[in-house]
Structure formats: structure tokens, C-alpha cells
Amino acid sequence: MSDGAMLIEAAQRLFADRIDDAAMRRARGGEWIGEAWDAIAEMGLPLALVSEEAGGFGVETVDALALVRLAGAHALPLPLAETMLANGALGAAGLPLAEGPAALIDGAGLTIAGEGAGWRITGTAARVPWARDLSTLVVADGAHTFRIGAGCTVAERSTNLAAMPRDDLAIDAYCEASGPATGVSPLLAGAALRSLQIAGALETVLALTIEHVSDRVQFGRSLSKFQAVQHELAKLGGDVAVAGAAADMAAEALAGDPAEATLAIAAATIRAREAAGSAVAIAQQLHGAIGFTVEHRLHWYTTALWSWRDEEGGTRYWSDLLGRAALAAGGAGFWQFVTEAA
């Protein structure tokens, strides 16, 4: 077994063990499930996108990104994807890695000015994942990467539909050092990670739905014997397959040349999100009323999917970006555009 496969298997065991129903309920109640985070950190997963030279442990990027998909399959209520990305940016910039949960945000909406030998960063960042729990905030503005350990206050606590913190942060921080910003923008990277989480969560949604329609008996036979149910399930399977392929495409783009990643990630994002909406509607329908309760596990994935599909740039934003590029190629150039975009 390859190192990557072993890592995924170990992470799978860890998530299955730590992210049980009780932990999910606590997280949904607004609690930071610290013991689960500590176990994840102890395994080194937050460093998975950091190169070996920068202090990571030499995980292939595609394997690291498979962890994000796996986290999605568990609707992991912890900022693992965010911290992986932030550490990846810190490592690439030659800055010290984060000591706890971290997130990477775009510096475009902030004021970044030279001050003394360093930089002062001020402004408000909206809906930062797990801002209340972060030890480190990483800001990248296209040229530089900054590591912020102090000087942030939560201005407004909010959550997404899955009770994952999305807080507004007031920032007034001084950074002594900065490093070069490499790789794709925080928004592109974030969208790619959300596509992977979506693909993972959809796999769980499909498994739950198959289980339900196989077990549930009505009119003297299991739901899975009804052709109407089979066909809806087939549509759900199609959505899950499509989202999975889109997520793979996003992952490859993120692991590849940053200059060629934008259109592939945009396309993957648009497609995975649309599949998520369609799949959730089918899964909810096939689960019947029990799926519309907090007693059934489905809602964890449903609400996570309904949140992730609108985060890291809205769907209109990504559609506009890709549509603009396609229109610029023109009718005669459209097919070439498609074959070169991804």
C-alpha cells in the first residue's frame, strides 16, 4: 500500500472514531470539539499540504487533497481543510507554520501598508471559517503572504447552515515578516477545497440513501424495488459521479501549474455545486420525513452541502468568470476553449 493510501486509511479510522454522532451533536451545538482536533493535529494532518523542506512530512498533494474529500464525507465540523491550506501557504512563503487551527484569506479587502520594517494590516474580513477558534490567520494578496498571530477580534459571530463558525474578524495587526505569495489565490484554493468536501459529502449522502431505500419497507416491499425510486437513485448516482469527477479536476488543477488552474477550478466548482443541490433534493425526497429531522444523520450532510455550495465565491461569481472567458473565445473558438480549459 502506498504512503498516501495508508494516510487516508488512518485518517478514515480517526474520523470514524472521533467524529461519531455524539461529537457531531456537540459541534452542532456550537462546541469546539477540541479532543477530536487534537487527535487530528497529532496525526499531522494539518501539515499535509506543507512540503517536506518547509516542515511537512512529504505527502503528495493529491493525497493531501484526498484528505479534504474524506473530511467532507464525514462533514467534519473542524477547520482541517482551512488549516491545511493556511499551512501550505505559510510553508511556501517560508513563514513559520501555524501552531493550531488556521485559515487563509485574501488580502484584497484589507489595507496593507508598510510600517517600520514590517507591515500593518487593517480592515474587516467577513465570514472567516472558525475565526473564533483560530490561532493563526494567513493573508495573501497576490504578491505577499502574511502570518497574523495577534491583533484580530471577532466582530460578529455567525455560522453557516451546518453550524460551522463563519465570523467577521476585525483586523489590526502588525506583521514583522512576509513571504512571497505563490500558488493560486485564496479564493480559488478555497473553492477547490469546497468542491472536494462536496464530493466527499455526496458520497455519504448516496450511501445513506441506498441504505434507507433498501431497508425501508412500504406496500410490502423495500423502497428499492420501486422503479420510480430506482430512477431517482440513479439520478442521484449520476450527480455524485459528476461531482466526484469535478472535484478530481479541481484537485489536479490545485496541484498543478497555478497559471492554468483558474478555469478548471471554476468549472469544477460550478458543476460540483449544481450536483450538490440536485443530489440533496433527491436524497431528502427518498428519505421521506425521517430525513427532515435532526434525529437522522442526513441533515448533517444536507446542511453542510447547502452551505459549502455558496461559500468561497458564489455560483454566480464563478459562472460569470467562466462565461466571460468562454464568450471571449467566441463561437468559432469555443470548442478550442473547452479542450484547453481543463
Binding site: D248, A267, D320, L322, G323
Partner: peptide
């Protein structure tokens, strides 16, 4: 509206081609 619609159908096509 047009840009968003073209973006959406382009995304579909790119992913279908991959499949």
C-alpha cells in the same frame, strides 16, 4: 444573465468531457 448561463453550460461540458 448570458455570461452566467454560458459559464454554467461550459462547466457542464468540461466535466462531461472529462467523464
Amino acid at each position: 444573465l448570458a455570461r452566467a448561463a454560458i459559464g454554467r453550460l461550459t462547466a457542464h461540458l468540461i466535466v462531461l468531457r472529462r467523464l
